[in-house]
Amino acid sequence: MTYRDIKTVGVVGTGLIGASWAAFFLACGFRVVATDPAPGAHERLREFIGKAWPALNRLGVAQGATPAEPIFVASLGDCVAQADFVQESGPERADIKRDTYLEMDARAAPDVILASSTSGFRPSQLQAGCRHPGRILVGHPFNPPHIVPLVEIVGSAATDPGALERAESFYKSLGKVTIRVRRELTGHVSNRLQAALWREAYHLVATGVVSAAEVDAAIAHGPGLRWALMGPMLLGELGGGAGGMQHFLDHIGPLSERIWAELGQTELTADVKKTLVESTHAEMAPLDTAAMLQERDRLLVDLINAKAQAKNLP
């Protein structure tokens, strides 16, 4: 099977990430078979798809079509048995992942890729005990995956290189931007980069240097604007002027090393969590969460569409 032969996508787990994937795959014209054991999951999935459809239309994915109805089945085995590709987005619990992959591996056709949205598990952990470990990999999206294009593709030593190629070709054919993570790491790549920022952000709030709102302002109205356009390596090249990255490293490098030496090492104790939660709640108090999410999605679509028109950005 090639990625072009994929007609039915199995969506396992229809929480926040799984529902977003289901909406995206439906908008791309696939038959979607979904399953989730949680009470009311089917209705919540239908509701999510309806809310997601305007953004998918504006991205040009749905192209004005009426939302298709996902096929919702009670059985995990029934779901994956019908699928040509599986996107699993279940709970981040080792016992649930283990049971899920053992059953999916037993019920899905041997050439069907089983891709996980997991943020924290390594492919080798998902493959343990499976008869067909070569088709199991990580296809880690970013929230919300029906809008944000990045997918991190991760395999283990046991993953078939052909499966990695097929998965990457499949995601790319749908307009996703992929990176191939060449070694298993906890949290893959982008979450590790985020975690490095969170560590210092939490330290600054926990030690009273700034509030949660001020940390957010420091990113959202400063470097975050540039990060939405290009990553730290290209920004370093541009920041070095005519001398490029070499001049940037020579000029900023000593300051960076002094900052690294002073970065905080924050442990999420009960007191630290309390400080972070209270400061964040103070920032959220005057805001309407539902309206904020709508605004977020609208601006994300605007930004993605604008970047698509750019000729000289990566």
Rank of each mutant, 00 (worst) to 15 (best):
T118H: 04
A167Y: 00
L185Q: 14
G187S: 00
V181E: 09
H132A: 12
G134K: 04
S124H: 13
I136K: 02
D160R: 02
E152H: 04
R131G: 15
A157M: 12
A167P: 09
V151L: 11
S116A: 06
G134Q: 00
P123L: 05
V138Y: 01
G175S: 06
G134D: 05
S173C: 07
H132G: 13
V138P: 03
L164D: 05
E165I: 13
K176Q: 11
P144D: 05
V177H: 15
A115S: 11
A163Q: 02
P149G: 06
F170L: 13
H140L: 01
H140G: 00
A163D: 06
E152V: 09
R135L: 09
E165H: 14
H188T: 09
G155I: 03
Q125V: 15
A128I: 12
A157C: 10
F170H: 04
G129A: 08
P144F: 03
V148A: 12
R183C: 12
P145G: 00
S156R: 07
E165F: 13
R166E: 05
P123S: 10
E168R: 10
G139E: 02
G120S: 14
F170V: 07
A158S: 15
T186Y: 14
P123Y: 07
S117T: 09
S173R: 11
A158K: 14
H132W: 12
P149Y: 02
V148W: 09
L114K: 02
V148D: 12
S169G: 15
E184K: 07
F121W: 14
E165S: 15
K176G: 07
R183S: 14
S156D: 09
P133G: 01
H188M: 09
Q127S: 00
V189K: 04
